[in-house]
Design a protein around this nucleic acid. Structure first.
Lengths: 154, 154
DNA sequence: CCTCAGTTTTTAGATACTAAACTCTACGGT
DNA sequence: ACCGTAGAGTTTAGTATCTAAAAACTGAGG
C-alpha cells in the first residue's frame, strides 16, 4: 500500500514532468507571427524592468550572447527596434514597434486567461488550506539549488 | 495588501519558473561522460518499461526520429547497444553495456538522494495537511497543457 | 593618445526537436 | 508466389536555444 508521503512525492514528480514538458511548448502566435519561449521571456522581462542587454542576461539566467541573438530575432520579426541613446552609444535600449505593442497586449490578455484558470483552481480551497499549500511551496522552493549541485557533482 | 490566493498564485509562478530552469540544467556526469536530459529521460523509460523505439517515442512525447537520434548518441557514448531479435528483425531491443549498467546504478543512487530531500520536506507535514496538498496537485494537474507565464511577478 | 573596462555582436559548436523522405521487414489477400 | 501496405527504424534538413570565446565598439582615466 502506498503511503501518503509516497503518494505526494509521486504526484509532485508527475507535476514537475508536466511543467517541464509544457515549458517547451509555450508558443504564442499573433497574426501569423510565432513567438518562442525565449522570445516571450525576453519581452516580459523587458516590459517589467527596462534595462540594458547585459542586465537582462543576468535576469534571464543566460549569457549576453544568447540575449543578443534573441533580440536580433525579435527585431527581424518586427517586434522590437534597437535604439541608441546618443549619450550612451555604448548601451542598448529596446522599444516595441506598433506591432510589438499589439502583440504584447494580446499576449497579456491570453496570459490573464491562463492566470484566471489557475485562480479558479486556487479558489476551490479555503484560506487555512491555502496557508498549508503556501508553506509547502516555500519548502519546495528551497530545494532547486541543491538538486542542481547534486547532479553536476561527482 | 496581497490576498492569500494571490500569494499562492505568485508562489506557484515562481515554482514553475524554477522547475523549468532546473529541467534544462539536469546534467549527469559519470567518469567524464556527460548525459543530457533527453538521454537520461530515455534510459529511465527504457529501464522502467522495456519496449520498442516507437512506443518509447509515445511515452517520451517526441517523434520516433528524436528517439532514434538519442539512442544513437547513447550507443556512441557506449551506454547502450542495439540488439535485433532474429524473430523480430523489424524492431529494436536496447541493452545496457556494462558501463551503462554502472552509470545507471550511479544515477539511481543520486536520484534517490534527491528524492530523499523531497521526502524530507514532505515529512514536515501531517497526514491531513498532505491530503490537502495532494488535492491541490490534482487540481493543477487537471489544467490543460497551457503554461503559466514566467517573470510576471505582479 | 592609449589603454582598460564594460557593452554588444558574431561565430562555431552543442543539444534537442520536428517533418518528411527513406529503408527494411512482416504479413495478408489474391 | 507475388504485390501492396503497414509498421519500425533511420536519415536529412531545418529550427530553436544556448554557451564559450573572440571581436567590435564606446567611454573614461592617466
Amino acid at each position: 500500500m502506498e503511503t501518503r508521503p509516497d503518494k505526494v512525492n509521486r504526484k509532485l514528480s508527475a507535476l514537475i514532468n508536466k511543467i517541464i514538458f509544457m515549458g517547451k511548448k509555450n508558443i504564442f502566435e499573433f497574426r501569423g507571427l510565432k513567438l518562442y519561449p525565449s522570445e516571450i521571456h525576453l519581452i516580459l522581462v523587458m516590459n517589467e524592468t527596462p534595462t540594458n542587454a547585459s542586465h537582462m542576461a543576468d535576469m534571464l539566467n543566460v549569457t549576453k550572447g544568447a540575449v543578443s541573438q534573441t533580440i536580433s530575432r525579435l527585431v527581424k520579426k518586427g517586434v522590437l527596434v534597437k535604439e541608441k541613446d546618443p549619450f550612451l552609444k555604448n548601451e542598448l535600449t529596446l522599444i516595441f514597434t506598433p506591432l510589438g505593442k499589439e502583440l504584447f497586449q494580446a499576449y497579456k490578455r491570453i496570459s490573464q486567461t491562463v492566470d484566471g484558470k489557475f485562480m479558479d483552481k486556487i479558489s476551490k480551497f479555503r484560506d487555512d488550506e491555502l496557508a498549508i499549500i503556501d508553506r509547502f511551496m516555500d519548502e519546495i522552493l528551497e530545494l532547486p539549488d541543491q538538486i542542481k549541485d547534486l547532479h553536476t557533482n561527482r
